[in-house]
């Protein structure tokens, strides 16, 4: 009786899984962390604003919303601030913006807005860090793009540019 040549099994047993791991693993960016919020409803963000008012993100639903996590000590936040102001003015009335202050004092945050321009949108304070945990924030700037149905469609880690903002606005159904 002739047995199948089992020695040839060594080759596929070793090489097939290895090739599969390399193919699926090496193409990925190790720094890219997908947000589990994308595709899901934005958690309700409740708190007090920089102006001292009680506020809930639920009041902004019904139109596309940008949630921007920022801090006055965050240098890239300075870079992206004009991008946010531009989007908010260009799409006034069809786009809402909400700031979330990350590990910062109200005085420093007010100083930032005085110096770099106040876009007029509300900024929620987050003294306990709870809102940052709800959003899974790893550090400012971090920006969430929410469609009119309240579903998070994208998350940007790091500063927004005019080009990346245009892409995200298109995802939200807003064009220039």
């Amino acid at each position: 009786m002739r047995l199948p040549p089992l020695r040839w099994l060594f080759l596929p047993i070793l090489l097939v899984p290895l090739a599969w791991l390399l193919f699926t693993g090496l193409g990925r960016d190790p720094r890219e962390i997908p947000s589990p919020l994308v595709g899901k409803p934005l958690p309700e963000l409740v708190g007090t604003t920089l102006d001292g008012d009680a506020f809930s993100s639920a009041s902004l639903l019904g139109m596309p919303l940008i949630v921007n996590v920022w801090a006055s000590w965050c240098v890239p936040c300075v870079e992206e601030h004009p991008v946010l102001i531009d989007a908010a003015t260009t799409h006034a009335g069809e786009l809402a913006v909400l700031g979330v202050l990350y590990q910062d004092t109200t005085d420093a945050a007010r100083g930032f807005l005085t110096r770099y321009g106040d876009g007029g949108w509300p900024t929620l304070l987050d003294p306990s860090g709870r809102l940052a945990v709800e959003l899974g924030v790893t550090g400012p700037p971090e920006t969430f793009f929410v469609n009119a149905d309240g579903i998070v469609v994208a998350r940007q880690i790091g500063p927004l540019t005019f080009a990346s903002m245009a892409g995200y606005l298109a995802d939200l159904g807003l064009s220039e």
């Binding site: 060594f10 070793l14 791991l21 962390i33 997908p34 947000s35 919020l37 899974g136």
Partner: peptide, 28 residues
Amino acid sequence: VDRYGEWILLAPTAAFAWWLPPLVVGAA
């Protein structure tokens, strides 16, 4: 995990791929 993703776990839950190396060594 629902907020940050699997990434927040220092030891992510074992996916099939994690068992491949011991399985390959065991089979060999």
